[in-house]
Nucleic acid binder design. Structure first.
Length: 934
DNA sequence: GACCTGCTGCGGGCTG
C-alpha cells in the first residue's frame, strides 16, 4: 500500500478513527495508481473518504490548481452534508470546497468566482448549468483531475444518468484531459455494467472495489394479527409498538400509510414520533433529521426519502411496513441500522397479507444470496436533443459531426447511428429549436419560446429557463373545479387511469361527482354528490413497480415452502406460518399445483375474469392493457383491468379474451400490443413530457415520427414488455404455460383483486364524445367547452355519429324550455326523456290533437305517412311502434293536414332507430304545442 | 391504498 501522507495520518487520529475501513483501504491504492474505480458498499462505510483520502494524498504532494475535484451527488441535502464533511478535511489541509445547487444563496454561489474552490460539490444539473451557461466559471473546469460520482445506483437507471454521462464526455473534451472517474454505489447487480456506464470513453485502467457487508443482517418477518373490534391499522400500530427499540426507522411504501400509522402510534404510549416524506416541508424534514441524529426520536415513520443518502445517526432498528418493492431498496432500508460497520443490521418486515410474507421471504433470500437488480439503461433521445442544445449554448455554434462525436462517446449512446442522429438534428431545425448556418448549427427561436426568462404571463406550455437543465419532470395535475372555483388538484396520471365521468370522489370530506374531464384545459369539473362510495384521489398515479426478481423467488420459496413452515429457523413468526399454511392448504385440498410461473388459473368473481399466476409485472401490465383494448374494441367501454405480479384480470366482459390473444399470429399480436400501449395514458403522459425537448409546442401529430417513436420506446421500457409478452403468449400456445379453470377465487386470485383497477383512456374523438355525453344531454356549445374541440368539428362528428354505422350512436332533440338543440346518446334517450330535467321537452300539453308522422326509410326508396292521436302515443307505446315499418328511419318529421304551419315548424330528425322514434315524436309534439299554445 | 430526485450566470448600477 502507498504511504498515507503524515498530515492525513494525524487528521485520522484527530477524527478518533482507529483505522481506515475496509473500503477505504481497498480503494486507496487503485486511486493512487490513477485507475478509474467503482466502489460498491452499503451507506455508512465511509465511501466519501475512501474516494477523497487518496486524492488528498496526491494533492498534498503535487501542486493542484482549482477546480481539481468535482463531486457529483443527486440530492441537495447530500450536497450540504458532504460539503460540511469535506470542509472538515480541507480546512485543515489548506484546500477549499464549495457547493452549488438551486437553494444555495446567490451570495455564496458568486463567491466561487472570486475564490475558486479545489473541490466543487454539485448535482448533475449543476454541472449542466456550468457547462451550458456559466461562461466564466466554466474556464476553471479546465483543471479538473478527478470526478467523484456519489450514489451511482440512484443515477444510472434514469435520464439523469444518461445526462451525466454525456456531461462527463463534454467535460473531457473541454479539458482535453482524461480525468480519473470514481463512482460510489450502494449494492447493485452487474457492477461491471455500472462501471462501463460511468467510465464512458476514459482510457484509464479500471477497478471495482466491492465490500460485502450487506449480507450480515438479521431479519424477522411478522404478520399483523387483526384483533376483533380493531381495524388493520390499529392492529399494525400495536405490533409496531411492541417492536420499537429507540431509535427506530419505520419505512412504509406510501405517504398515506406514513400519516395513517402516525395517527395510530400517537395514541400509544410511544413518545417522540416523527414523520418524514416528500410532502413534508423542508424545515420540518430538517428538524426531524436533527432530532434523529441527536437521539431525540423514538420512531421516525418515513418513505423512501430516508432511504437515500443523508446521515441519520445511529439507528437501533429498521421496521419495514410491508415489503419494499426491490432487493436494492430492501438492502438500503436495512442498511440504515447498525451503521458503524461491525454492528449487524437489524430489521423486521411487518406483513399484512399472505403474499406480503412471500415477498418478504423472497427479498431476504435474494439479499442473502447477493442477488440485486441490475442497472437498466437506455438511449433516451430527449436527453440527446437537450444535450445538443446544451452544447450549442456552450459553443455558440458547432458542426453536426462534432456534436455526434461528443454524444456518442457516452456509453449510453455508443450505439446511436449517425443517420438517426442527423434526422434528429433536422427535425430540431424544422421545429426551430436549432438553425443551420454554414454547415453549423446555432440556437433557434423556439428555444427561447419554450424556456423563458420572464416569469410573468406564461402560457401553460412555456417553461422557466431553469427547467431546461433538469430531466425530472414535475407531475402534471388536473385542477378540480366547481362553479369556476378550484377546489383541489389531482395527479394527471391518476385522472387518466382511474377517473371517468359520473365517478364519485371524496376530497376534504365531501363527495363530488365528475361532470366531465377536459384534457385540454387540464380540468376536472365536478358537482356536489350526495351518495356513493367516493374514492380518495390523493396518491400519485404512478405505481412503484415490483422487481421481477421477486416473482421468480416467490416461485422458489413456494417450492420449498415446507422448509419455512416446519424448519426451526426464526425467520418468520407463527402468525406468518399460519397464513402460509392456509395458503398452501387451498392448493393441496383442491389438488392444484402451488402458484408458479408456468400455470395460469382462470377464476371468476363478480363479472371479473381473473388470470392468477406468478408473472413479471411488466408482462402482466402489457396483457391487461391488451385485454382492455380488445374489450373496448369488441364489447364495451365500461370495462376495467388489473395487473400485478400475481396475475391480471378484466372486468365487464364475459368472454375469455386471453384466448383471443392466443389465437392471433405473431404479427397481429405485436401490432395489437403496440396499439394498446399507445392508447394507454402512460404513453400520453410520456409524449407530453418529452415533446418540448424536441421543440414541439403544438399537439403531436402522426408526422412527428421521432417523438412518437421515442415516447413508445420510453413508455415500453418503463412500464411494459412487448418482447416478454410475445414470448409469454407463445409459451401458452405451445402448452409450456398451462391454463387451469377453477371455481371461485384462489389466494392468488385474491391478491390480483387487491390491486386497484385501471380504466380505458380513449383519445378517439367519437369515444371521447361518448364519454362526455354519457348520462346527459348537452348543446354543441356546452360540449365544445367540455372537450375543448371547436363547435364546427364537434357538430360534424355528432351528426356522423347518428348514423346506424356508428358504434356510439347519438341523436338530438329540442329543449322546449330554451329552444336549444341538445345531443344525447341514443342509448340514454329513454332515460333522459323520462327524467324530470327535460319534462317539458317530452310531455305534450294537449293529448287530444292528431298529427301525421312522415317517415323516409334508410337505405331504401320507401316513405310512409301515418296518422296518430297524441293520446295513443302516450298511452299505448306498443301500438305506436307498429306504425313504423322501418327499423331505421332516414328522416322523421310531423305535419298536420289541417294546419300547414305544423309542417313548417316541425323539427326534423335524421337517422332514427325505430326503438327511440317515439321519444323524438313526443319531443316534436311538445315543441310544436309549446309554440302554438305556450 | 401507490416512492423519490432538481431547477440562470454575470456584472452593472443602485441604496444607505
Amino acid at each position: 500500500m502507498h504511504k498515507l501522507h503524515c498530515k492525513l495520518q494525524s487528521l485520522i487520529k484527530e477524527k478518533g478513527w482507529d483505522d481506515l475501513t475496509t473500503v477505504q483501504k481497498e480503494t486507496f491504492t487503485p486511486i493512487i495508481e490513477g485507475k478509474n474505480v467503482l466502489v460498491v458498499a452499503p451507506t455508512g462505510y465511509g465511501k466519501t473518504e475512501a474516494a477523497l483520502l487518496p486524492i488528498f494524498n496526491i494533492m498534498l504532494r503535487n501542486e493542484t490548481k482549482p477546480v481539481a475535484v468535482l463531486y457529483i451527488t443527486p440530492l441537495k441535502a447530500l450536497i450540504n452534508d458532504i460539503t460540511l464533511r469535506i470542509e472538515w478535511w480541507t480546512s485543515k489541509l489548506g484546500f477549499s470546497v464549495s457547493r452549488k445547487h438551486g437553494e444555495v444563496p446567490q451570495k455564496e454561489k458568486s463567491l466561487r468566482l472570486k475564490k475558486v474552490p479545489h473541490i466543487l460539490v454539485t448535482t448533475p444539473e449543476g454541472l449542466e448549468i456550468d457547462l451550458d451557461w456559466a461562461s466564466k466559471f466554466r474556464e476553471n473546469y479546465r483543471n479538473i483531475k478527478w470526478i467523484i460520482i456519489d450514489e451511482v445506483h440512484e443515477l444510472v437507471n434514469s435520464k439523469r444518468g444518461a445526462q451525466l454521462s454525456v456531461l462527463l464526455e463534454r467535460l473531457k473534451d473541454f479539458t482535453n484531459y482524461d480525468f480519473q472517474r470514481i463512482g460510489l454505489s450502494a449494492t447493485i447487480g452487474n457492477e461491471q455494467k455500472v462501471a462501463n456506464l460511468i467510465f464512458g470513453s476514459s482510457n484509464r485502467e479500471s477497478k471495482i472495489v466491492k465490500v460485502e457487508g450487506a449480507r450480515d443482517f438479521e431479519v424477522k418477518i411478522l404478520k399483523v394479527k387483526q384483533k376483533e373490534g380493531e381495524d388493520l391499522w390499529g392492529s399494525t400500530a400495536k405490533l409496531v409498538n411492541q417492536l420499537v427499540e429507540r431509535p427506530t426507522l419505520l419505512f412504509t411504501n406510501s405517504r398515506f400509510s406514513t400519516e395513517r400509522l402516525y395517527e395510530e402510534l400517537e395514541r400509544s404510549k410511544l413518545k417522540n414520533i416523527f414523520i418524514h416524506h416528500s410532502s413534508i416541508s423542508k424545515e420540518e424534514k430538517i428538524r426531524v433529521e436533527n432530532n434523529l441524529r441527536e437521539g431525540k426520536a423514538d420512531v421516525v415513520i418515513c418513505t423512501r426519502t430516508l432511504e437515500l443518502g443523508i446521515h441519520v445517526g445511529d439507528i437501533k432498528k429498521v421496521i419495514m411496513y410491508r415489503p419494499p418493492p426491490t432487493v436494492s431498496s430492501f438492502l438500503q432500508r436495512l442498511g440504515r441500522s447498525g451503521h458503524t460497520i461491525n454492528r449487524v443490521s437489524k430489521g423486521e418486515i411487518v406483513c399484512l397479507y399472505d403474499y406480503d410474507i412471500l415477498e418478504a421471504i423472497s427479498l431476504y433470500e435474494l439479499a442473502k444470496a447477493g442477488i440485486v437488480e441490475p442497472p437498466k439503461s437506455m438511449p433516451y433521445m430527449d436527453v440527446v436533443a437537450r444535450e445538443i442544445i446544451g452544447i450549442t449554448l456552450q459553443y455558440g455554434e458547432i458542426n453536426v459531426e462534432k456534436l455526434y462525436n461528443l454524444i456518442t462517446k457516452s456509453s449510453y449512446y455508443k450505439g446511436l447511428k449517425f443517420d438517426k442522429f442527423l434526422s434528429l438534428v433536422k427535425y430540431m431545425i424544422q421545429n426551430g429549436l436549432l438553425k443551420k448556418e454554414n454547415y453549423k448549427v446555432k440556437i433557434g427561436k423556439t428555444f427561447f419560446k419554450i424556456w423563458r426568462f420572464d416569469k410573468d404571463n406564461k402560457i401553460t406550455w412555456m417553461k422557466d429557463f431553469s427547467e431546461f437543465f433538469s430531466f425530472i419532470s414535475t407531475d402534471e395535475t388536473f385542477n378540480l373545479r366547481y362553479e369556476n372555483k378550484t377546489i383541489g388538484e389531482i395527479d394527471a396520471v391518476y385522472v387518466y387511469k382511474h377517473l371517468r365521468n359520473n365517478d364519485i370522489i371524496r376530497i376534504s370530506g365531501k363527495l363530488w361527482r365528475i361532470v366531465n374531464i377536459d384534457i385540454n384545459k387540464m380540468q376536472v369539473n365536478v358537482a356536489p354528490a350526495t351518495s356513493g362510495n367516493g374514492e380518495i384521489p390523493i396518491w400519485k398515479g404512478e405505481n412503484i413497480s415490483k422487481s421481477s426478481l421477486i416473482t421468480k423467488q416467490i416461485e422458489k420459496v413456494l417450492h420449498n415452502i415446507d422448509d419455512y413452515l416446519y424448519g426451526d429457523d426464526s425467520l418468520i413468526d407463527e402468525e406468518s406460518k399460519n397464513a402460509l399454511n392456509k395458503l398452501v392448504e387451498f392448493y393441496r385440498i383442491h389438488q392444484l399445483p402451488l402458484p408458479n410461473t408456468r400455470t395460469i388459473y382462470i377464476e371468476n368473481e363478480n363479472d371479473e375474469i381473473v388470470y392468477a399466476t406468478l408473472i413479471n409485472e411488466k408482462i402482466a401490465n402489457t396483457l391487461s392493457h391488451a385485454l382492455l383494448y380488445l374489450a373496448t374494441k369488441k364489447y364495451s367501454l365500461n370495462v376495467s383491468a388489473r395487473s400485478s405480479i400475481y396475475g391480471f384480470s378484466i372486468k365487464g366482459v364475459d368472454k375469455d379474451l386471453l384466448q383471443d390473444l392466443i389465437n392471433l399470429d405473431e404479427k397481429q399480436l405485436k401490432s395489437l400490443l403496440i396499439k394498446s400501449v399507445k392508447r394507454s395514458p402512460l404513453f400520453f403522459a410520456t409524449l407530453k413530457e418529452i415533446q418540448y425537448s424536441f421543440g414541439k409546442i403544438n399537439k403531436v401529430s402522426s408526422e412527428d415520427k421521432i417523438i412518437l417513436e421515442e415516447a413508445l420506446k420510453q413508455t415500453v421500457n418503463k412500464y411494459f414488455s412487448i418482447k416478454g409478452t410475445m414470448k409469454y403468449v407463445k409459451m401458452i400456445k405451445e402448452g409450456k404455460i398451462r391454463i387451469i379453470n377453477i371455481n371461485g377465487l384462489s389466494p392468488l386470485g385474491k391478491a390480483v383483486l387487491s390491486h386497484s383497477p385501471i380504466k380505458p383512456w380513449i383519445s378517439d374523438l367519437s369515444i371521447r364524445i361518448y364519454q362526455a355525453l354519457k348520462g346527459g344531454a348537452y348543446t354543441v356549445e356546452e360540449l365544445s367547452d367540455m372537450l375543448g374541440i371547436s363547435k364546427k368539428t364537434l357538430e360534424l362528428r355528432l351528426k356522423k355519429m347518428r348514423k346506424p354505422s356508428s358504434k356510439y350512436r347519438t341523436c338530438n332533440f329540442i329543449d322546449v324550455d330554451t329552444h336549444e338543440t341538445r345531443w344525447v346518446l341514443m342509448e340514454d334517450l329513454k332515460e333522459i326523456a323520462e327524467s324530470d330535467d327535460y319534462y317539458n321537452s317530452f310531455n305534450p300539453i294537449n293529448l287530444d290533437e292528431s298529427y301525421v308522422m312522415v317517415m323516409r326509410a334508410y337505405q331504401s326508396e320507401g316513405a310512409t305517412e301515418s296518422v296518430f292521436r297524441v293520446k295513443d302515443l302516450v298511452k299505448n307505446p306498443e301500438e305506436f311502434l307498429k306504425r313504423i315499418p322501418y327499423d331505421e328511419i332516414l328522416e322523421l318529421k310531423l305535419k298536420d293536414p289541417n294546419d300547414s304551419l305544423v309542417a313548417s315548424i316541425s323539427p326534423k330528425y335524421y337517422f332514427v332507430k325505430k326503438s327511440i322514434a317515439r321519444f323524438l315524436v313526443l319531443n316534436a309534439i311538445s315543441y310544436i304545442q309549446n309554440l302554438k299554445f305556450g
